[in-house]
C-alpha cells in the first residue's frame, strides 16, 4: 500500500517520510521471519539514517516534483510483463518455510551445527558474518569506506565555514532539547552494548555503528553543528573510517604473520576458540568504527553544503 502511495505522490517530502514508515514495516516483517539482526539493522538504517540523509538532500534540491510529461503506459506495460514472467518463474520455487529447500542444504547446516563449538559464540549470524565469511565482510566494510570517500569527493571536503545562522536552529524548543539530552546517553550506551554484546545477542558492528551515528545526528539536529563538532571534529572522521578498515585488515595481517591464512583468528591466541572470540571482537570493532564515521561523515558533508548554498 505504501509502495503505491510512493508512486502516486508528488510531494517528495511526504515520499521520504512514507519511505521511513515502509522501512519500519519491513523491519517488523524481518522480525517475524526470525531475522532479528536484520530487523535491527533495517530499523536503524532505513527508518533512521536514510530518512535523515534524504531529507538533507531534499533541502539542497527541491521539494516538489514536476508533473510527468509523457504517458506512463509503456513503462507500466514493461513492468507488468516483467512481473508476470517473474511470478511464472516462482511457480517452480520451493515453498515458504520448507526445510528441504536448496538454500538450506549447502553450507548452512554446517554453520548451524559446528558454528557454536568452532567459533564459540551463541549468535550464529555474528559467527558467520565475522568468522566464516570474514572476507566478504572485509570487502563490504571497504565498500562503505569507498562510498564515504565518494560522497566526500563529490560534495567537497570540509572548508572553513561560518556558523549556521541562529535563526535556523531550533533554539527555543526547550522540551525537545531536554528530551534529546536525556536520550543521547541512552542511545550511545545502547550502541556500545550492541557493539560488544553482538556475540551473544542480536547486534554487531554494523548496527552499533549506525546507532552511534544516529545519536550524534540527533544531537546535531537539536543543538546545531557547533556543539557536535566539539565532540567529533569533521577532520577526524575520514581518519576514523580508515582506522576501522585498518583494524580489520590488521587482524588479517597478524594471522598472516603467524603463518596462518589471512583472517584466521585462531592465530590470535593459543586456544583456537579464544582466538576466534578475540578476532571477532576486533573485526566487529573495526566495522563499527568505519560504519559510524562514514555515516556521520556523509551527514556532515551534506549539512556543510546546506550552509554554503
Amino acid at each position: 500500500m505504501i509502495a503505491i502511495a510512493i508512486i502516486r505522490l508528488r510531494d517528495l517530502f511526504a515520499i521520504v517520510i512514507l519511505f521511513g514508515i515502509y522501512s519500519f514495516l519491513t523491519a517488523v516483517l524481518f522480525m517475524d521471519l526470525d531475522a532479528v539482526d536484520v530487523a535491527f539493522t533495517e530499523a536503524a538504517v532505513g527508518a533512521g539514517v536514510t530518512t535523515v540523509l534524504m531529507l538533507s538532500s531534499l533541502y539542497l534540491t527541491s521539494r516538489w516534483e514536476a508533473a510527468p510529461r509523457h504517458s506512463s503506459f509503456l513503462p507500466l506495460l514493461v513492468v507488468i510483463i516483467t512481473g508476470a514472467v517473474l511470478v511464472y518463474s516462482t511457480l517452480d520455487a520451493p515453498l515458504y518455510g520448507d526445510p528441504s529447500a536448496p538454500v538450506h542444504q549447502h553450507v548452512a547446516p554446517r554453520y548451524i551445527q559446528k558454528g557454536p563449538t568452532e567459533v564459540g559464540m551463541p549468535n550464529m549470524v555474528t559467527a558467520v558474518l565475522a568468522s566464516y565469511r570474514g572476507y566478504d565482510t572485509f570487502g563490504e566494510t571497504f565498500v562503505i569506506f569507498t562510498a564515504g570517500l565518494g560522497v566526500m569527493l563529490l560534495l567537497g571536503v570540509q572548508k572553513p565555514h561560518k556558523p549556521r545562522p541562529e535563526l535556523n536552529t531550533i533554539e527555543d524548543e526547550i522540551v525537545l532539547k531536554v528530551v534529546v539530552k536525556l536520550l543521547i546517553p541512552l542511545i550511545l550506551l545502547y550502541g556500545l552494548y550492541v557493539q560488544f554484546h553482538g556475540d551473544f545477542g542480536a547486534g554487531g558492528g554494523f548496527q552499533a555503528g549506525v546507532i552511534f551515528a544516529t545519536g550524534f545526528i540527533l544531537y546535531d539536529l537539536a543543538f546545531g553543528e557547533k556543539e557536535v563538532r566539539k565532540v567529533v571534529p569533521a577532520h577526524w572522521l575520514p581518519r576514523l573510517a580508515a582506522l576501522g578498515v585498518l583494524i580489520y585488515g590488521g587482524v588479517g595481517v597478524i594471522s598472516l604473520l603467524n603463518n596462518k591464512p589471512f583472517l584466521d583468528y585462531s592465530a590470535l591466541a593459543h586456544d583456537p576458540v579464544h582466538g576466534q572470540h578475540l578476532g571477532v571482537l576486533l573485526v566487529e570493532l573495526g566495522v563499527g568504527i568505519t560504519v559510524f564515521s562514514v555515516i556521520l561523515l556523509i551527514f556532515y558533508v551534506l549539512a556543510n553544503r546546506r550552509r554554503q548554498s
Binding site: 521471519l33 526470525d34 531475522a35 539482526d37 536484520v38 539493522t41 533495517e42 538504517v45 532505513g46 539514517v49 536514510t50 540523509l53 534524504m54 538533507s56 538532500s57 539542497l60 534540491t61 538454500v103 538450506h104 553450507v107 548452512a108 554453520y111 548451524i112 558454528g115 550464529m124 549470524v125 559467527a127 558467520v128 558474518l129 565469511r133 566478504d136 565482510t137 563490504e140 565498500v143 562503505i144 562510498a147 564515504g148 565518494g150 560522497v151 563529490l154 560534495l155 554487531g204 554494523f206 555503528g209 549506525v210 560504519v291 562514514v294 555515516i295 556523509i298 558533508v301 551534506l302 553544503r305
Partner: peptide, 29 residues
C-alpha cells in the same frame, strides 16, 4: 533454527545500501 546465511548477507547489504544511496544523493545534489 532459521538459516543464518541469508541474514548475514542482507545485514551487510542494508548498510552497504545506505552508503550507495548516499553516493546517489550526493550525485543528485
Amino acid at each position: 533454527y532459521s538459516n543464518p546465511l541469508p541474514h548475514v548477507l542482507i545485514l551487510t547489504a542494508i548498510v552497504v545500501g545506505v552508503a550507495t544511496i548516499s553516493v546517489g544523493l550526493a550525485l543528485v545534489v
